[in-house]
Design a protein around this nucleic acid. Structure first.
Lengths: 223, 223
DNA sequence: TTGCGCATTGACCGTATGGTCAATAACTAC
DNA sequence: GTAGTTATTGACCATACGGTCAATGCGCAA
């Protein structure tokens, strides 16, 4: 199916047999694997293609990873780590009032949605393969969902304490999930429909913020 | 990998060579195909397994469908049709006031989420394969998302007109998406984490309803 | 009862792919 | 320079899977 009937695996021969060792080679393989898995899904990904992307022979992958499944799990784990550590660093320092913090948080969340980035691809992989790879489910629950709801909950607590939000929102089970829901949905819609076909994100962000402010705020004592 | 090294396709021989014809055989194949695709995804599904589930020889599938891809698209189309036609029938007659209608709509949406049913599986397939099968994206956009937001929008319009909701919610772009977002997210969480691991649905439903009522309602003129 | 059309079978093919392994050569220590 | 370690190769295997097709026999019409 290739235009080159060459039976060689299509290795880049610029640097013939560069010897790297685990510390340098492993990340290269993981990066190549992520691209391949992201584009084709677990079932569609081919180990030979991963090798080609990494510029190495297929056999070398098995020198570092025992199987396709192991490579997949390692890939996801590595990608999640690098992604969400960076994300969490931006969260604190959201401004003084809880209201401002809420605005900032919403803006942050939707900005991340706007990034074309790899995260959407990662999310699609999680949705598609979570049933077959329980590690993916655990990872999403602990590293992503729990962090998201945790941040929202602490924000609600602060707002209720300061009197900006209604007191009962401080400990309403399920509220954090209801608050972040539209962001998750927005991500899914973009996975399914693409950047162009998905509902307008700016409009949704404004409406979402409106809804939250109106729904959470304590009745204005000045009115 | 099977315990039976038998090379025969494992056909059910209870009724040897029952002759059915297109009208009766096609739905059987589609049902079997849906189960297989749902369990293994498109890439992981095997045509031989579909045949086995349907109790027929693999070759017969190709008598009715030209390829695996065609079978997949036909499967999805058939399943969507039967599912969402039934869903829409329950929507009208949501009670008198817009508030009551909103309550009813939220209850309806979450009840559908609670059903163990095939719909979740279908949704997972859509998320996983939409990029490779544009038909899936079109189908989700037109048959599912558009219907959902449409219903919500007409509800908002009615509520604003009657004075129950704030006037500006009648034509706020993106609001319908922000409103249904948590339901979509709830579905995705259940796909990833399963019924047991996902966030509690009762709590989310209550909180979601609270948020909507507080966020949409016009300021009480009696206060 | 006979004859025919087509639903149905199951053996078969080509290929693609995950995984293996013995040979090789790049780097290191001395 | 030399020996040893191991990263790296590429050819190879077994198999699984999508798809094909000639043969078969069921059910209907006359």
């Amino acid at each position: 199916m290739d235009e080159t009937p060459d039976r060689s695996s299509g290795i880049r021969r610029d640097a013939p047999r560069r010897r790297l060792g685990p510390a340098a080679r492993t990340p290269e393989i993981l990066a190549a694997a992520f691209e391949e898995f992201a584009e084709r899904g677990y079932g569609g990904a081919r180990m030979a293609a991963v090798a080609e992307r990494a510029g190495i022979a297929k056999g070398l992958i098995y020198h570092y990873f025992p199987s396709k499944a192991a490579l997949f799990e390692a890939t996801i784990r590595a990608r999640t780590e690098s992604t969400f550590v960076a994300a969490e660093r931006q969260v604190p320092g959201l401004g003084g009032s809880a209201t401002e913090a809420l605005r900032g948080l919403v803006a942050l969340a939707y900005d991340r949605l706007r990034e074309e980035g790899r995260e959407r691809t990662l999310f699609r992989l999680i949705v598609a393969e979570a049933e077959r790879f329980p590690e993916l489910a655990r990872l999403y629950r602990d590293e992503i969902l729990a962090r998201g709801t945790g941040i929202v909950r602490s924000l609600l607590l602060a707002g209720a304490k300061s009197g900006e939000f209604r007191a009962d929102v401080a400990a309403m089970p399920g509220l954090a999930e209801a608050i972040i829901g539209p962001v998750v949905a927005g991500s899914v819609w973009r996975i399914i429909l693409g950047e162009a076909g998905a509902p307008d994100l700016d409009a949704q962000q404004q409406a979402h913020l409106h809804l939250l402010l109106a729904g959470l705020k304590a009745p204005d004592p000045g009115a």
